[in-house]
């Protein structure tokens, strides 16, 4: 525990000591703002029987910028340590590989959570600023962000895993976005082919966008939360093994 804290601190600080953290922060605020204003315009122009949070997050716009966050957050995590040789410095002290995996993951989750806080404040101050009736209930804001967090945790774990496979951060980033886009399209399988075939339930269960859609309607379903948390854990274990394997096989 004593060694985890400085490791997490170091990872978290590395976002702010390079432009990357600030750029990502600005990027998220900007893109979330674009999604929100598009949603507001949509609601103003046509009568949609959905709440504002739903219309904001239930759009290709949103998924496009959302998925691109993860390679940027995670690509450096292990690839850079391996390339610069600092991995050797870390793993020859008393710290263990899992300390490293865990602290890199936690620091990124914290950073990721921070990215969404300005947006939450924007939604919360909607009524005060526009003096219109608020077009969503607070619970929706909560469930949406809970799902964003859980899905994000899995995507970050996936990114860390991709980064542990190579010492080239660009390749790590490309693999990450590739995996995310793949899982995004797999999530659409039941939308495109319908749900008449045997495996359709499995596709539904793993469809991140369908879970987020439900969450944006205020539905709190624990099964996908549990599933994605387990997937996160599994991916982190895999990452741990990859880091060890890559150093031991050589």
């Amino acid at each position: 525990m004593k060694t985890l804290l400085p490791l997490i601190q170091k990872e978290f600080r590395s976002f702010w000591s390079s432009p990357l953290g600030w750029v990502l922060f600005a990027y998220t605020i900007l893109m979330e703002g674009v999604c929100l204003s598009t949603a507001m315009k949509g609601l103003a122009d046509t009568a949609i029987a959905e709440n504002l949070v739903f219309v904001t997050f239930h759009s290709p716009n949103f998924w496009f910028f959302f998925l691109f966050l993860f390679p940027l957050i995670t690509m450096r995590s292990f690839a850079e340590e391996e390339k610069s040789g600092t991995l050797e410095c870390l793993l020859t002290t008393q710290i263990e590989t899992w300390h490293l995996v865990f602290s890199k993951f936690i620091a990124r989750i914290l950073f990721y959570a921070l990215l969404w806080t300005p947006g939450v404040f924007v939604f919360l101050s909607f009524g005060n600023i526009t003096e219109l009736p608020i077009p969503f209930i607070k619970e929706v804001l909560f469930t949406t962000h809970l799902y964003l967090f859980t899905l994000g945790a899995f995507f970050i774990a996936l990114g860390c895993f991709a980064s542990s496979l190579t010492s080239n951060q660009i390749i790590a980033g490309i693999v990450t976005i590739g995996l995310l886009i793949l899982q995004y399209f797999l999530g659409f399988v039941t939308v495109i082919w319908g749900d008449q075939f045997a495996a359709s339930d499995i596709f539904k269960l793993f469809s991140a966008q369908q879970h987020l859609t439900n969450a944006c309607r205020g539905i709190l379903d624990y099964a996908p939360l549990l599933l994605f948390s387990l997937l996160t854990l599994f991916t982190l274990l895999l990452t741990n093994h990859t880091v060890n394997y890559r150093r031991w096989k050589r």
Partner: peptide
């Protein structure tokens, strides 16, 4: 001699001291 390029000398040594307990 791999080091963290973006850290200051004292910050780096402090970090290393901490992870060594």
């Amino acid at each position: 001699v791999p080091l963290y390029e973006d850290m200051r000398v004292s910050e780096f040594l402090k970090f290393r001291g901490k992870i060594k307990g």
